[in-house]
Design a protein around this nucleic acid. Structure first.
Lengths: 133, 133
DNA sequence: GCCAACCTTAAAGTATAATTGAAGGCTAAT
DNA sequence: ATTAGCCTTCAATTATACTTTAAGGTTGGC
């Protein structure tokens, strides 16, 4: 029989990643991270790998994946779905690229407006004629 | 005495800009756009310039100003506060520039990850080792 | 064997921003 | 007279990611 792995309580896992225990319970409800089991008293017991998974979640969040996205990523079968991962990353990349395009356009517009504003001798042109181009 | 200007009802103004009447009432509460007056029955009556002001609001929104920002812009005295407008635009530009930097960084990271993903022969590397660089 | 620190649940609350909707009742146009 | 449009106020919605609350039960160190 396989020997027991080391297990940690919710507080220990939470502390080692720097999140609140309530966040871990929330993630469990959302299907992002479940404890390996429960103690006789009902305490959640996590494998130490949970720390890694939490770090994965935080990393993915930091590049803009929503918890829903991340749930989808985590639910993939590692061997068969690299393609699916690529699709999700590509989709996120598309969003980001589009957003950058939009922001640059706004940047151009505002820069233009600011220059007009600076050159103006009488009265602020912005307040009459905002962002028309 | 100045002759009466043409006035429009809330529905007419709303329709010509493509917003809901409830939005106009909301803007009024927020101090963004008030009707010129009321009819005997209490109907809001707007000057036609309200359409322009609404378009200003939508334009400013589209480049990322919040309604609060816009309220501040609208409350400025046109003759004296071009400087203040410049400050607000510059501040928005700074936000945008920063956001673009962040997004590009994420873009690089994801592109890198995607390439690793594509090259991988056995199993998806992303699911084990996400975004570490 | 005591007490502080931990754990449990479910549901409700928080934050932000900008609307949107419902209820109940006048008004305008045809 | 019907109906579309307007009025008011107050509340609910949308989205996302948590956080808090209430009312307990459990554990571990001294």
């Amino acid at each position: 029989m396989p020997r027991e792995k080391k297990l940690a309580t919710i507080g220990q896992i939470a502390a080692s990643v720097g999140v609140a225990t309530s966040t871990l319970r929330f993630y469990e409800r959302e299907g992002l991270l479940s404890p390996a089991g429960r103690s006789p008293a009902g305490y959640r017991l996590y494998e130490l790998g949970a720390v890694e998974q939490l770090q994965f979640i935080r990393s993915a969040q930091s590049v803009g994946f929503s918890l829903e996205n991340i749930k989808a990523l985590l639910s993939l079968d590692e061997r068969t779905s690299c393609k699916q991962v690529q699709i999700m990353i590509q989709s996120r990349l598309n969003d980001i690229t589009q957003r950058i395009v939009e922001l640059k356009s706004v940047q151009r517009t505002l820069t233009h407006t600011l220059n007009r504003c600076r050159k103006s001798k009488k009265g602020c042109p912005v307040l009459k004629d905002f962002l028309k181009p």
